[in-house]
Structures are given as structure tokens and as C-alpha cells.
Design a binder for these strands. Structure first.
Length: 422
RNA sequence: GAGCUCGUAGCUCAGUUGGUUAGAGCGCCAGGUUGUGGCCCUGGAGGCCGUGGGUUCAAUUCCCAUCGGGCUCCCCA
């Protein structure tokens, strides 16, 4: 096929009418369920100051060091948001949301941007939904966040997932563990993969989830973070696990689970699906008790997760779950001739006012073509109108599913339709 | 950033061992029915065979590059 003159940027896709229904279905579901959990929606700008993202996520993270879309204009630096935790925290601090009292229970849905090489389950513009609970250090908030995440997938029918859980402790625990890890790795430093060598000084934790062949034996025998958690961290972690058990949410402890952003503390979790291929994380999150202060607010504990919408859809496809349903319209007015056409145009608003979805031909086509169109549009009923009907004031009201029709006044038809759509 | 692989109509794909007007199914449009859809029949529109260059008398077919898709590594949603 000839190449179109213009196209989307690499890794960015159009969401077309035939697929929009599943997006709307999911978005509605998220909003309804979030409401049940008493989470409130927050929307922040698509662009943030570069400094917020760099400070928030950490200079050395992959996202910041190589996956950011950034540009400057005058003295201002802009970055397309790669995730929403840091922006939500920025909004929390900037707008003094702590003054609303209690903990803030926020959720979001929207596009994110990362300049990666696209592949299955990975685009440069992709969509996430997520939740941030800011202000509580109680394990109840960790567990509610996880419960909401799982709840959404279960509602949809994605149940063959694994919740991976770990604690990376508070900063003291983590420093103690990093030291232990370095001490352990040092004698074997030369055996480490190149990439792990780079991580050795700055973020040895990340060596743990290295997939390099040569690192595996070293990782196997490495000390575990779990053994270096201080009392407070241990107690928080065990409460999280207890509460999850109370709720009947099963999990798999994974002492090697280390998340990509620097702001995480204590609880870390990921929801994995076997249906996704190489990119198997449906959602991930954790606690980030230091981020608010890092960004310039009061020290405030918080926990949240982010979930990939495209990956959710991939899982649905693999499982044969259809979220969209058919497009449909209540009634299609089929008109013959100019009089009928003008009559039809005038009836449309009356029907819509009664809550009935209604349409008609825009192209002046033959009756047959209009019927075909009504069928394609999945119209439940058709109103057929020509000179005869106009003269008699009785219109042909056709049930497209039953293939039955009767002559009725417009009044009678619109009442019937209004009843049906009520 | 690296590797593998693919690129023919709107979609799914045949095909050309290099040679006159490149095919099918589905979809789209129209007709068969002068006022009736979904089935059926007939016809039509729609491709410089992703783009650029090279080899050749001749390239959609061979070679190179490039762009795009898919998959993988890295990392994450």
C-alpha cells in the first residue's frame, strides 16, 4: 500500500471507533469501582517540569536517564509525564490537599509517555490507571490499594494473575542491606555482568532482578533484604501480609522484587499475568514514604499503584474476554423523497429528547441502501417514511430483529421507543 | 541502544523460478426487488507489490539502504 503522507509517531497509535467501546467500558468500570472505594479522580497536565520527574523518580533510573520526552521553550523545561505518582504528589503539595484533612484517596486514568523501543505491550504513548493514597502509613492503606487493583482485574474476569510482594524496608534498613549486598558481591565483582557492575555502587538492589546469565549464581546466594529489615519495617510488612490474608488475597513473596523508581520504600508489589509474553507486568506499585518530602512537602507517607491499560486489553484478548460489545442505535429513520427526509430530520431531536438514540441517512441513498445501513448500524428499529405515510400520518415501524412491522402514528412510535430505552 | 523477522487492495493473504492488462476471500458501492436489511446472484470501484538506490534489455520478484510492523534483550505498565 502506498505510504500515507502523514502518520503517527513511532510507538503511538490511534484508538479508532471500533475499539473505543472497550476503552469506555473500562473507564466507566474504573470510575464506578473507584467510587465504591471512595477514591476521587485527579487530572494533572500531560506535561510537567523536567526537574520534578528527575528528582521524583531518580536521576539514575532507566525512565529518567533514557526514556523521557523532554524539550525546552524559553527558560522552561517540559517533559511528557512518564508516570503519574510524582505529578500527583506535586499536585498534592502545590494545592495543599493535606488541608482537606485525613488521607487523600486519589485515582487517575490517562496517557503516559516513554521513549522506548515499542513491542508487544509496550508503546511510547500508553495508558495507565492508578491510585495514590497520600497521608497514611498504616498497612490498611497498602492493602486497600492492592485490593482495589486486584478488584478491577477480577471484575473483568482476569483472575489467573500472580501478586508478587516484597518489602524493601525503610531507608535505614535499605542502607544496611545495600552494605551487606556490596560486601557479599565485592569478592565476586569481576564475575558480574557489565550492567550489574554499573549498578554496584549506586543501586545494588537492582542487581537482584538482573536477567543476565552470569549474575544468576551470585544472586541465588545473595543475602536477602528480608533479613535486614528493622523492627518497624518487619512489623509493617507482616501487617500487610496479614491483612491481605484476611481479605483472601493470595500473594507470592519475592525477595528479589525491586521496582524501577527510586522513591519506593517498604511495600513493593507487582501483578503478573502469564498471558502477556515478555512484558508480563499488568500493574505495579508500592509505598513511597519519602517522595512528598523529596518534592518539597511535609514528610508524608503514601502508597499507590499504576496499571497498564493496553496490557489489560492484551490479557483480555488472550482470555477471550470481550469488553466492548456491539455498537447500536435505538432507531434509524429510513426516508423516501425530499419531504420524508425533511420530516425525518425534524423528528430526530424529538426522539433524542426522550432518551432515544436516533439517526438517519446522510447521503440521500436508496431505500435498500438505507435499510442495509440500518442493519449495519445495528439499529433496533427502523421508521420507514414516504409519501404514503406522510399523507396518512401512520408510519411503518419495523422491528429489525423480529422482522415485523406495523403502522403507527409518530406519537405511538416515540412513546414505545421511550419506554424501551427507559 | 542491540538482535531476529516481516512489508502485495480498507482487512486477511495467494502469486510472479526476473518478461505483456498482479489475483482470491471478506469489506465497500451499485443492480437483481417499481418502497424494505441480514442469505443468495451479478457487476463495479480500489494496488506505481512500504520508500529510495543498484544489477539487468527488463525488477513487485535479485542486491543494498531506509522507513514501518512483529518478536527478543535491556527495563517497565
Amino acid at each position: 500500500m502506498a505510504q500515507p503522507k502523514y502518520s503517527t509517531h513511532l510507538g503511538m497509535v490511534d484508538i479508532l471507533p471500533d475499539e473505543i467501546r472497550k476503552w469506555q467500558f473500562l473507564e466507566n468500570l474504573i470510575r464506578e469501582e473507584a467510587h465504591k472505594f471512595n477514591f476521587e479522580e485527579i487530572r494533572t497536565p500531560i506535561m510537567e517540569q523536567t526537574e520534578l520527574i528527575v528528582r521524583g523518580l531518580g536521576q539514575l533510573t532507566d525512565i529518567v536517564s533514557k526514556e523521557i520526552f523532554a524539550f525546552s521553550r524559553g527558560d522552561d523545561n517540559y517533559v511528557l509525564r512518564p508516570e503519574l505518582t510524582a505529578p500527583v504528589v506535586r499536585a498534592y503539595v502545590e494545592n495543599h490537599l493535606d488541608q482537606r484533612g485525613g488521607s487523600q484517596k486519589l485515582y487517575y486514568i490517562g496517557p503516559m509517555f516513554r521513549a522506548e523501543r515499542p513491542q508487544k505491550g509496550r508503546q511510547r504513548q500508553f495508558h495507565q490507571f492508578g491510585v495514590e493514597v497520600i497521608g497514611s502509613s498504616d498497612a490498611v492503606s497498602d492493602v486497600e490499594v492492592i485490593a482495589f487493583m486486584i478488584h478491577i482485574y477480577h471484575k473483568i474476569g482476569i483472575t489467573n494473575t500472580t501478586l508478587k510482594l516484597n518489602s524493601i524496608g525503610d531507608p535505614d534498613s535499605r542502607e544496611a542491606y545495600k552494605d551487606a549486598l556490596r560486601t557479599y558481591l565485592k569478592p565476586n565483582y569481576e564475575k558480574l555482568s557489565e550492567i550489574s557492575k554499573k549498578r554496584f555502587e549506586k543501586n545494588p538492589l537492582r542487581i537482584l532482578d538482573s536477567k543476565e546469565e552470569e549474575d544468576q549464581p551470585l544472586i541465588e546466594n545473595a543475602p536477602l533484604i528480608t533479613d535486614y529489615l528493622n523492627e518497624e519495617s518487619v512489623s509493617h510488612y507482616s501487617r500487610v501480609k496479614e491483612y491481605l490474608t484476611d481479605l483472601g488475597i493470595s500473594f507470592e513473596e519475592d525477595p528479589y522484587l525491586v521496582r524501577g523508581m527510586d522513591y519506593y520504600t517498604q511495600t513493593a508489589f507487582e501483578l503478573i499475568s502469564p498471558d502477556l509474553g515478555a512484558q508480563d507486568a499488568l500493574a505495579g506499585g508500592g509505598r513511597y514514604d519519602l517522595l512528598i518530602e523529596e518534592i518539597g512537602g511535609q514528610p508524608t507517607p503514601a502508597v499507590g499503584f499504576a496499571a497498564g491499560i493496553e496490557r489489560l486489553f492484551i490479557a483480555c484478548e488472550e482470555l477471550g474476554i470481550d469488553l466492548g460489545g456491539e455498537k447500536e442505535v435505538d432507531v434509524y429513520i429510513v426516508t423516501l423523497g425530499d419531504h420524508a427526509r425533511r420530516w425525518g430530520l425534524k423528528q430526530l431531536p424529538k426522539l433524542r429528547e426522550k432518551g432515544v438514540s436516533a439517526t438517519m441517512d446522510y447521503m440521500g441513498r436508496s431505500m435498500k441502501a438505507q435499510m442495509k445501513d440500518a442493519n449495519r448500524e445495528n439499529a433496533r428499529y427502523a421508521i420507514i417514511v414516504g409519501e404514503n405515510e406522510l399523507n396518512e400520518g401512520k408510519f411503518t415501524f419495523r422491528d429489525m430483529k423480529e422482522s415485523k412491522e406495523e403502522a403507527l402514528s409518530f406519537e405511538e412510535i416515540s412513546n414505545l421507543l421511550a419506554e424501551q430505552s427507559a
